[in-house]
Amino acid sequence: MISKNIQLDEQGRLKHFLSIEGFKRQHLISILDAAEPFANVHEQAVKKVPLLRGKTIVNLFFEASTRTRTTFELAAKRLSADVLNININTSATSKGESLLDMLHNLEAMHCDMFIVRHNQSGAAHLIAQHVSPHISVINAGDGCHSHPSQAMLDMFTIRRHKKEFANLIVIIVGDILHSRVARSQIHALNTLGVSEVRVVAPKTLIPTQIETLGVHVYHDMQSALIGADVIIMLRLQKERMQGALLPSEDEYYHQYGLTEQKLAYAKPDAIVMHPGPINRGVEIASSIADGPQSVILEQVTNGIAIRMAVMSQTLGRSLNIKPPKQITAIAEESH
């Protein structure tokens, strides 16, 4: 369906990072591999590497975020780039300046990369289609569509615990309908070749024909948990709850909240993930969030490494630095 993958340049190198869809397995593996050395940068006395010295990166956030914006900022700074944070109230832009006008103004300030979060699906694609050719765009979450760096940090975390993707059963629980994280995870998991992806929620929170993305749909959490290696709990985004999607938080917790009792149905070595921020007692019990199977805080740490990898791969293109071997290999693959 994608006529031309605008995420890659003519040499097949990463130009924008907008959605997981459109990438082949070796692309994703190369990002995961590139993140490995960065995962240890914070342990060094000097946490910085000079890869993006002299580059200006703009965090363009049209929607509130603490975690994502901060990890992007830290990642950029550890790569020695200059970072500009711009938080824009969307209601303010809709009154006057259009999204693209604002963008062109920023371009005029000679920035090299936009990291964009927006409450509308397709916003990052729109920006990528209209920026000058030398600028890279990274999608930090657009509406209900995509949040590719979150999905990649989740894959990175899974790989650190599970080594192989091939035999994994992964379940994603919660508000799939509104979740860009779930959509990106589903694409990433299937591209990396896991055994099965299950999504779990009442029908009100499952989008139509989600099966076409390659998942099995469950409405009963216990049966979905059986045999699970990875359990991904989604945040129940209260601010997005419009109309009669759920009867109450209590009922939701009883049916779909992750409790000790429910967790027992999964494999004993199953890991528990959550993109954060977590609602304790709404989608997950505190004892699990803080328990031995939880890798939630690791996800945050890994987020910095993944974002460093993505930034250096996109902006690194235009620098005269030698690209890592994996990336060269991709460029030479013909299919």
């Binding site: 699906s121 657009d142 509406g143 209900c144 959509r183 989008p207 139509t208 993305l213």
Partner: peptide, 15 residues
């Protein structure tokens, strides 16, 4: 249209 494409793109559908 509420269907496979709206689900994929994360767009609100009209059934």
């Amino acid at each position: 249209h509420e269907g496979a494409v709206s689900t994929r793109l994360g767009l609100a559908g009209i059934p």
